[in-house]
Design a binder for these strands. Structure first.
Lengths: 403, 403
DNA sequence: TCAAATAATTCAACCGTTAAACAAATCGTG
DNA sequence: CACGATTTGTTTAACGGTTGAATTATTTGA
């Protein structure tokens, strides 16, 4: 549970909690705009310069902040020393992604910069989970070494998987991997979080993608269709962590049967298989998304028609979501990102038609800024975000020799 | 904005904030279990008895708590004095509801008990908004008098309306009243909140109805169909406050045209008009919901068929919502509450069929505990809830003569 | 009547923030 | 090159809120 909100309501508050809160406040301010003096921070947060000084001292000796020599000069007066997130020898987050057609790893430093990345393509459908997890573990240990080479310390790991995950780290159901009740909680050393791929991708988009709204629906087109829901700037995981199963929302209740047992699910109209493998078209069976894009660019009528059908189905479903949740932005991720030019018109038309408030408050539809990296980056970001959320817990005790 | 979360993250925290937090903690503890001694509170919250004493002193002299003579005895030792929410001469909340076929007012004391209620039936469709607001204002002033007679002081008012409300209190659109851009912000003295009827009903159900889940979908069947979404125990209002337009989610995208301009909206299948006025049946046009219930109880085939159709449509839509949001409870409110016996089977069948996680985590479907009072009670409850959330702001200064 | 037990209050100590004074570092100007 | 102006960062006394131990208050049971 790396995503839990920590400041919750029904717990007593002592002076120490106060300090924790203000430590986070200062760290967050530095994360917001980067070289910043203690005085700047004081002005921006409303804390006193004195308080900021003591807080910054803690954060610097705890290896979360770093001083940089000259702050950008302005007028007269003593120059302030700049403060930045410690991306030199501080903590770092490790993100992993287990997907149907690739494994990926990614290391982010405290400032959110990608410091290492490795992608291992290969179809994992039907492969023994233990084998796949072993490959992922190997990927992870290479990433840890790479981080150490750069002076960074991995303080946690998050894994993105295309399926439903229990709070204890068990993968309850990953239909497209063919997995069911796989325990992924301890396959790598250190604290580990297992989380749905679309959720982490949404987080990645929120914190590391193009800056946009704090309320959006991230639609992840992979073999299946998932969604990550960001409400008021934080991920909504549902009562049991199983939100976002957009692919199995009904478009036509009496439509074709779906693998899930129901009829007319969105996945039947806009899933990767529906887009790639059906009917006669310029795109041959077994083709890739890149082929689809080029066929669309050529203007192939059958391809365009199929994309239009998918866009309509997506649009109907998304319009329903907007009527329900009132998000103001829809982010198209996964395979939908490169297909945005052909999907957007149909989606926007359905929104205009079906969303009650569309007339006076527009909804943006845009492609994901991070492309296919959204989930790994989101996973690593979730780890460093935990540090940002509770810096007091991550202050490394000053070694007496060095201080 | 009576519902805002006050403890937010990017604000400095001083000792005073600490006190505010702990005041709320103590008040909340008393609200949780009622006659409770200072020592009990200390044990339950983790605060020191000393601290609890000073906090309770503030709350008592500020008229939010009241001491009751003998706490329930147990063994030996000095008996603790019981503390209860001040429902004798404390603050109270006024809730109003403007609906298509009735106006209502309701006063709740700090303990959440209904101390006054008035309902004024009568069809308001097409009536001039100013006239309706004047009636509501009259209702409100009678409620204020009734409260004063009982020693209570109204500290705020919330109004439930069947429509979309802007943050500034303007009713942007209330289709079934025929209102558009009506300013309802100042029609009664004192602080006023205007809010969607389904949202307030959901809040009412959450805090004053049958205790249940903290994540649920409240489906409000009135002339239109609205929904209130409660996530992690708090109301989700959407990016702009316009969440919950369930009635215009598509069931059959190519279905019959809806007033809203789209096609196949849920309202066409399960709205009050669809249930009451269509086709030949034992229920004559212009009938009421009570007629519908008695026809269903008689087993009238046409009525049962129509209810079954409505249940299927509701079920498809609700299943989509659950796939998306992973709520574990669905509350049927408004006209659906008395119809639950006939609606539930169809809804549950669709959920079982279409919700991915239904197999291993059941979804409860139940009628609203408050019936048609949910919205007014929720409105009044929202006001007293604001006091609970930020007691420091509501401590009445001790009058020197009385203290 | 007295000891045991529990409730509530008092008081010195602690901790984090504040405000104001002070020290440090730079620029502008003569 | 010196000096005032200016801004940064640290120091120090004071303040507010919580804590823990001691004290007082109130009841039960022997």
């Amino acid at each position: 549970m790396i995503f839990g909100i920590s400041l919750s309501a029904d717990v007593p508050v002592r002076q120490a909690s106060l300090r924790q809160h203000n430590l986070r406040l200062v760290l967050g301010q530095v994360a917001l705009v980067s070289p910043q003096s203690r005085a700047d921070i004081a002005a921006a947060t409303g804390l006193t310069r004195a308080t900021v000084s003591t807080l910054v001292d803690d954060l610097v000796s705890g290896r979360l902040l770093r001083e940089v020599s000259p702050a950008p000069r302005s007028g007269a007066g003593r120059p302030g020393v700049g403060l930045v997130l410690n991306d030199a020898d501080g903590p770092a987050g490790l993100g992993l992604e287990i997907n149907v057609d690739y494994l990926a790893a990614c290391v982010l430093d405290l400032a959110g910069a990608v410091r290492h990345r490795e992608i291992q393509p290969g179809d994992r459908r039907g492969v023994d989970p233990a084998t796949v997890l072993a490959s992922a573990a190997a990927l992870a240990s290479r990433a840890v070494l790479a981080a150490e080479d750069q002076g960074l310390t991995i303080v946690g790991t998050a894994v993105a998987v295309p399926g439903l995950v229990s709070p204890d780290g068990t993968i309850r159901l990953a239909p497209n991997l063919g997995w069911r009740d796989v325990d992924a909680s301890g396959f790598t050393p250190g604290p580990l979080t297992v989380e749905n791929e679309a959720n982490l991708a949404a987080l990645g988009e929120l914190h590391h993608g193009s800056p946009g709204s704090a309320d959006f629906l991230y639609v992840s087109g992979e073999i299946g269709i998932g969604a990550g829901i960001v409400l008021h700037g934080s991920l909504f995981r549902g009562a049991r962590g199983w939100s976002g199963e957009l692919g199995h929302v009904a478009v036509h209740p009496d439509g074709p049967a779906c693998r899930c047992g129901a009829h007319g699910c969105l996945e039947q109209y806009a899933g990767q298989e529906a887009l790639l493998s059906s009917g006669a078209s310029a795109v041959s069976p077994g083709a890739s998304v890149a082929d689809l894009v080029s066929a669309a660019e050529r203007g192939d009528p059958a391809t365009l028609a199929r994309l239009s059908t998918a866009a309509d189905a997506l649009g109907v479903t998304i319009a329903g979501v907007i009527n329900l949740l009132d998000v103001d932005t829809v982010v198209l991720g996964g395979i939908y990102a490169p297909l945005t030019p052909w999907l957007r018109p149909g989606i926007e038309a359905q929104i205009a038609d079906r969303v009650l408030t569309a007339a006076w408050s527009p909804v943006r539809v845009r492609p994901a800024g991070l492309g296919s990296n959204a989930a790994v980056v989101g996973a690593a970001g979730a780890v460093i975000r935990a540090v940002h959320e509770e810096p007091a817990a991550w202050l490394v005790p000053a070694s007496p020799g060095k201080a």
